[in-house]
Amino acid sequence: MAFRKLHHENRRVPLYSLIDLVFILLIFFIITSIMIRTTRGEAKLYIPTPKNEPGEAQILIQIIDDKTCLWLDHTAIDTLRRHSYMIPRADDLGAKVDLLLRKMTLDNAALSLRLSRLKESIAESVKKEYFVLIRCPEYLPYVAATRIIEKLVDNPYIEYGCVSGSLQDIRSSKSILIDGNVLQIDF
């Protein structure tokens, strides 16, 4: 049987066209990879709009600066009662605020711990609802408030609100009174 020789010279790949094609593909992939940039994901943090009426909160967190805050809950009443000898007059708001500042100021780490404990206590005990009011001074970055709120969002028994206000507002409030088990701050 006779075999015919193949003509190899006709089957050569055109080199210039191949290089051309490869470069075009290369440019195409470079451009697409530049255009499809991975963007950072974003999330939504819900904050209820404040009510224009006097409210009641189980916990008040007054942000003092970006590192510290004043935590006022039912223990503030005990603190004021126990150290009443440090308050010369009942209407001396400055002395009351100074006492609360000395006893109930938390740094960021302590605040995180306190919030974790709050959530644990809610999970263990009766499902009592809490309202946490966060007061943030106007000149501070809003991130000071959002970093507290983000720790509260995942608990259905904790409601929260956020308003503007400084420690100076508490100092210059009309009154800070203990009425039974309630600490009343009349701004």
Partner: peptide, 19 residues
């Protein structure tokens, strides 16, 4: 939030974008 609060019946909450 205060502007929305004045319209509280309409806007009960605002969304803050975070990353």
């Amino acid at each position: 939030m205060n502007i929305c609060s004045a319209q509280r019946q309409a806007i009960p909450q605002v969304i803050i974008r975070t990353t």
